[in-house]
Design a protein around this nucleic acid. Structure first.
Lengths: 362, 362
DNA sequence: TTGTACGCGTTATCAT
DNA sequence: ATGATAACGCGTACAA
């Protein structure tokens, strides 16, 4: 049944007995048309099942109505949700999404940007390893393609839909201090390729310092380590003095608890664990995960709104960071043993940190 | 710095002092060219930073090198991973992905298909509410656009990358029987819009019947119910006799355990829980989730491979279903009490009941 | 109100 | 080996 014959506006015009110009005017409701020809054209289009070719339109208008979206990986639910949000918002404005992923490889970031610009996208929404160092991103912007970042802290001249990772991490430090912790660690995955991870560590350090705690120990793990409870347990056992660990994301925080259990450590009595992202599953666990809740879908939508404004020729203000919420769970508690020399500086008046009202910041 | 002036092959030709035809031949390595002009053209292209316009190419070749991918939602990690797999495989073959999502709305399925075909995609990979009833999908295929399904059981004339949901569900029934369960339930989300959910229930019914167990109780829940432990607990308490519940996906299975806990039920002593999908987090839980493990990313890759074959003009064989693995966890165990009086009552020698499922496809 | 004709960027055909 | 030109589908300036 494959009739490869595409129907074009010429076919419609022919059947309606008019010129393509008239057909175009009718179908686009542009320009003046007689009721008579209007009816005939619309009838013909319907009969033929005509649909405009976006390619032809793009060529003539030099607008593809397509936006390029680049993220590290859709296998990470946080990015997937953001893309979903962006895609929906763009769809409402008539734009489609061309997607690409880099798997955290800067070279693939570059290649993806080349392909997307070759496809003549009208705009770009990107999360990449190093936006500020990307000559491809610079070239795209220089050639007039508006671009906005997602997840990244705002860069020079670049708008970004983001949360204030450092501020969120400082809040985590405060909650740790309130619970009585002094010796903490930061468990990081992809530290070198994720500025989010780095920003969270920086903020956590700042917070710990400001609260008189020891500087947090940075514990970097590979994907393989993170996936293996045994390997993670080995890594963890190399840092016996820690009473609380802030993981750079929720999945890692959950894996960490598994590893802790293998070492015979109880959570939170022997080790407190705090995550980041606020994935849905975290609240359904037997021991609900203490974490920082964010809204990736909203981030995607905001990125899309910013880009749409730019596509309309506006110059939107840099947006305020999106809100995050500290979600008290059951994995952060007081350390089992208080050491007298620590107590004075860090003891909080609250005995039940997990029942504190959640902290909200915009 | 926005010089909106796109550099075209004419600019390259002008700078190289030759015709566009020669420039095209050099840049595409098609046709014969002199070493001299080759050098000049390549130099000019490099100097200008020339890149082909995919739009111009698409118009002239009527091939967009773009594939349309339609899924219910990228917020569901299962679909997101599949898209990631498909996207990577297609990228290796030089294709990009235009994505669309329906949020399980058939009307949006239709609209997405219209848009994608208007954008002249060379092929389609789709997961939708009702592929067999979609006139848009039929129209696309009739007009020569190859399409493959993802997640769906194979339909008449349509290839699909899928797992055998019914067989997997029968395996779950067998494991339940082995553990000594007789009164089971199937907890379903989006039963009416997901044929995966329906296939799993059907298979579970078949398995239960074949093993002499009571017919599983179908418990449908809304998104809101699934998200609220309290609501889920209420629904659950309406079915006190069940000793094991098979949830239509892992997230639901985890939420279910939370609800069970609210009712004072211990898992698995008082209630066994089995999930579906095999999400990574499930194995890191304190009580690792018993589930059926699948590989959505592999499914996406297979769908892409099938489509690529069709785009090469081949007519690939219907693929074998992708493998699934029953992953024993700690949430399926023997029921605490055996009730002798139930056994005789529910044993049915007849195979008839399970062949007339109580739900109807729409 | 309607039609003609050009240009968008590219490749292929046909001469030269 | 190279160049001129048509064609792809569309919108629009211009002419009628």
């Amino acid at each position: 049944m494959a009739r490869g014959t595409k129907i074009t506006i010429r076919d419609v015009a022919a059947r309606a007995g008019c010129s393509v110009a008239t057909a175009s005017r009718v179908l686009n409701r542009s320009g003046a048309t007689s009721a008579d020809s209007r009816a005939r054209v619309e009838r013909a289009a319907a009969d033929l099942g005509f649909a405009f070719s976006a390619i032809g339109r793009a060529l003539q208008s030099s607008r593809s109505m397509t936006v390029g979206v680049l993220v590290p990986s859709l296998a990470n639910p946080v990015f997937a949700e953001a893309v979903q949000g962006a895609q929906e918002q763009l769809r409402d404005a008539g734009y489609q999404c061309l997607i690409a992923s880099s798997t955290y490889d800067p070279e693939r970031d570059a290649e993806a940007l080349r392909v997307l610009t070759a496809k003549q996208v009208d705009g770009l929404i990107v999360t990449m390893v190093a936006p500020e160092d990307s000559s491809e991103l610079g070239a795209a912007r220089a050639s007039g393609i508006p671009a906005v970042l997602m997840f990244h802290d705002p860069r020079a001249g670049l708008l970004s839909a983001h949360v204030d990772n450092a501020a969120a991490a400082r809040e985590v430090a405060r909650r740790c201090a309130d619970a009585g912790h002094r010796n903490t660690g930061f468990l990081a995955l992809r530290f070198s390729t994720s500025d989010r991870s780095r920003a969270r560590f920086t903020g956590f350090m700042q917070g710990c310092a400001a609260l008189g705690m020891a500087a947090p120990v940075l514990v970097e793990v590979s994907e393989d380590e993170a996936a293996s409870p045994a390997a993670l347990a080995r890594t963890l056992s190399a840092h016996p003095g820690l009473t609380a660990i802030f993981a750079s994301n929720d999945v890692l925080a959950i894996a960490l608890q598994r590893a802790a259990r293998e070492l015979g450590l109880r959570v939170p009595q022997d080790l407190s664990v705090i995550g980041f992202d606020g994935i849905e599953i975290g609240r359904h666990l037997d021991r609900p995960l203490t974490t920082v809740e964010t809204d990736p879908e909203a981030m995607g939508r905001q990125a899309a709104r910013l880009l749409l404004a730019m596509l309309r020729g506006e110059m939107p203000e840099p947006p305020a960071p999106l809100p995050f919420t500290f979600r008290p769970g059951a994995t952060l508690g007081a350390p089992a043993e208080d050491r007298d020399d620590d107590r004075a500086a860090t003891r909080s008046p609250s005995a039940h940190p997990d029942q504190n009202p959640s902290f909200k910041r915009t």
